[in-house]
Amino acid sequence: MKKILAALFLAIFTLSANAQMTALPSGGNKRASVYEQVGLTDITIHYNRPHVNGREGQIWGKLVPVGYVDQGFGPSKASPWRAGANESTNITFSTDVKIEGHLLPAGRYGFFIAYDPNECTLIFSKNSTSWGSFFYKEGEDVLRVKVKPIAADKSVEWLRYEFTNQTTDAATIQLEWEKLIIPFHVQVDLVDNQLTWFRNELRSEKGFTWEGWDQAAFYCASHKINLDQALAWTDTATSVGFGGNRSFVAWSTRAMVLDSLGRSADAMAAMKKALPYGTLNELYFYARGLTKTKQNKAAFDAFKIAYDKFPDEFLSNAGMARAYSAVGDYKKALTYAQKALVQAPNQPNKDIVTKMVATLQQGKDIN
């Protein structure tokens, strides 16, 4: 009989191990994850959410012990808190980041906290697969930082992680539970990450046309970084083989890069190549930018190219009004402004040109 029972037990155990039924996690602690992109960096936290469950005042310093403790199981005799429940909490960064100003390489980490009411120690461990913190080893720590816990205004029933105070290149990650918040600041190198993305993507199908090379170069020119490589990127963008040799955008980006390098004469030469390929909008707003910086002769030439290429249209007439006004010929500017007024496509544009006409009639510059 005992042999029969033993055989049945073995059979049932084997079936159970191979065909586990879906059930709530141990203790009802919900599995959860939170994801945010900070800059171009993907940050994901996987954790289990314990709840207060009527234990107000018994969480911090009691259920979550102070410092490091012997949990009575596993090899670790000095374990931090698992920063959640059940399995160890994991946090993944797709790029290198700085945690509270300290560099942490890209990767997946086990996340632990040595709680203290005055100053908590946050631990990022290369061991991200062990259960809880029973197998914690200090030698596997990649980074430790200290942060001050903050009292919360309202109690949080289920432990949660939130991203707050977000900017283009930083965020604060907060563990919130009961009436306590444990925050830490994450900073990313957005510019370096962006350049890395560009370099990788230009080796993919996005590098088969001029637009990708131009976008990368324009970013560098706008931020005045990586200019030598950006200039090489504009060589590709404006080449015949990549199709940008007849693009106003590609040539004007090259001019921006050259100007950022202090090569003004070369920048002007690049813009001369750009102008014949411009649309009416491109030419008008380029020339408009020149009037704002008082480059009146260059602005006149650009407005004239737009007018000759797109004669007697609203923007070309408005452009010539600005062109003649820039060189002080208000009488001739007025004739073009009056033409533009008749052609205004909508009320906002009509209001703008009406004001231009009135200003020119007073003998004043409309730029």
Rank of each mutant, 00 (worst) to 15 (best):
M1F: 13
K2I: 11
L8G: 14
A11F: 14
A17M: 14
A17H: 11
A23S: 15
G28S: 11
E36F: 09
T41H: 05
H46T: 10
Y47M: 07
R49Y: 04
P50M: 06
N53V: 02
Q58C: 05
W60D: 06
D70S: 06
D70A: 00
P75V: 06
S76D: 01
S76I: 00
K77V: 08
W81N: 03
A83K: 01
A85G: 07
A85M: 04
S88W: 00
S88A: 10
T95P: 01
T95E: 11
K98Y: 10
I99Q: 06
E100I: 03
H102I: 05
H102C: 11
P105A: 08
G107M: 09
R108F: 01
Y109V: 09
G110V: 08
G110F: 08
G110I: 11
F111E: 01
Y115E: 01
D116A: 13
K126Q: 12
N127G: 02
N127S: 11
S128K: 15
S130P: 08
S130Y: 10
K137L: 13
E138S: 12
V142T: 12
L143K: 02
R144W: 01
I150Q: 12
A152Q: 13
D153S: 14
K154S: 13
V156E: 09
V156N: 02
Y161D: 03
Y161K: 05
F163K: 03
F163C: 01
Q166A: 12
T167R: 08
D169V: 08
A170Y: 05
A171W: 06
W177K: 01
E178L: 04
E178V: 07
F184T: 03
V191T: 13
D192C: 04
N193L: 03
Q194E: 05
W197T: 12
F198M: 03
R199G: 11
R199N: 15
R199S: 13
T209S: 12
W210E: 10
W213L: 09
W213K: 05
W213P: 01
D214M: 15
Y219I: 00
N226Y: 13
D228L: 07
W233P: 04
T234N: 03
T234G: 05
D235R: 04
T236I: 14
T236R: 15
A237E: 08
G241S: 14
F242M: 13
G243N: 00
G244K: 09
G244P: 09
R246D: 10
F248N: 05
S252T: 12
R254L: 09
V257R: 02
V257L: 09
V257F: 05
L261Q: 12
L261P: 02
S264N: 13
A269D: 06
A269K: 07
K273M: 15
K273G: 12
K273N: 15
A274Q: 06
L275Y: 14
T279C: 02
L280K: 11
L283C: 09
L283G: 04
Y284D: 03
F285S: 14
K292T: 11
K294Q: 14
A302Y: 02
D308G: 08
K309C: 06
K309W: 06
F310N: 12
E313L: 14
F314A: 10
F314L: 10
A321Q: 04
A323L: 09
G328T: 06
G328V: 09
G328R: 02
D329P: 08
D329S: 03
A333P: 03
L341W: 02
Q343V: 03
N349F: 11
N349Y: 14
D351Y: 00
V353F: 06
T354F: 05
T354K: 15
K355R: 15
V357H: 02
Q361L: 11
I366R: 01
